Simulated scan of single mutants.
Amino acid sequence: MLKSLTLALALVAAPVMSATVGDDGLHKAPWIIDTFKDLREDLADAGAEGKRLMVIIEQRGCIYCTKMHEEVFVLPVIEKLLTDDYYVVQLNMFGDLDVTDFDGTVLPEKDMIARWNMMFTPTMMFMPESVPDDVTAVQAAVATVPGAFGKFTTFNMLNWVKNHGYDSDEPFQKYHARMIEAGAFPE
């Protein structure tokens, strides 16, 4: 019991390290995977690692992206989920790197993001384990989260997607409320 309490206190008291910022102005956390941005390949690689594909859209100077990287993603329980259970691919809202969508369309990041009608950063899109060849990422996503959220919402969303909550009759908002009421956030 004392060992468990000591470990729990150490995890809460442990200093959190924020992600570095790359030349493109985006945060570079250790759990973000640098890929060729072919979502079909990324989905296959995620599956091979037993992880879920998450696409995160960010932009230089985004104060909400900074909030997520410095206050939420760095919390040990959330960072562990991102590291252990997710294959995270980062896209730059105004970037020029080519992205290949699930339907085979290839466009620069900024044009792909416009095609998807994404307007906010950060935006997290969570993909199912398999995606048909004739759909876009937006059509395939099992959940899309535009904007910055606190630790409880982020933790619960990561768990809800990981555990296929979208396949149940309980929408995320009800799951989230139930988890908050149960005090399910480990601290």
Rank of each mutant, 00 (worst) to 15 (best):
K162Q: 11
F149A: 09
E71Q: 13
V138N: 09
M124H: 11
V12Q: 12
V55Q: 02
N156I: 01
M118S: 11
D133Y: 05
I33D: 00
G165N: 05
V12S: 11
E109R: 03
G165H: 01
L43N: 04
L5W: 09
R178D: 15
L82T: 02
P132W: 10
N156Q: 12
R178E: 14
R40K: 15
E70K: 12
D133R: 12
A13P: 01
G165L: 06
D98A: 14
Y87M: 07
M112F: 15
E70N: 14
I113P: 00
A10R: 07
L53C: 08
I33Y: 03
C65G: 06
V135M: 09
K37T: 07
D101I: 09
F126G: 01
Y87P: 03
H27D: 09
V89M: 07
A10Q: 13
L81Y: 04
L97E: 15
A44C: 03
A137I: 06
Q173N: 10
G61Y: 09
C62M: 09
M17V: 12
N163F: 10
T123P: 05
A182K: 15
V161W: 00
K37M: 13
M112I: 10
A48Y: 07
H69L: 00
I63P: 04
V99E: 03
H69M: 13
M112L: 15
G150E: 09
R115F: 08
A14I: 11
P122D: 07
T83V: 05
I57A: 02
H164W: 10
E170F: 00
L91S: 04
K162T: 00
F172P: 01
N156L: 00
A114Y: 01
K51I: 04
I113H: 06
V161T: 02
G150K: 08
D111I: 04
E70V: 04
A29W: 03
P76F: 04
N156C: 08
F185R: 03
K151S: 10
L39H: 08
P146I: 02
N156E: 13
K3I: 12
Y175K: 07
K67P: 01
M54Y: 04
T123Q: 03
C62K: 02
K28V: 13
P108F: 08
T66Y: 05
T121M: 12
E129S: 13
T123L: 10
K51V: 01
T35C: 11
F126V: 00
T66L: 09
F120I: 13
K174S: 12
L82E: 02
E79N: 11
E49Q: 15
A8C: 08
V161G: 02
K28H: 14
Q173E: 14
W116V: 04
N92Y: 08
W116I: 06
A143P: 02
A44T: 14
T144P: 00
M157A: 09
F185M: 10
A182H: 06
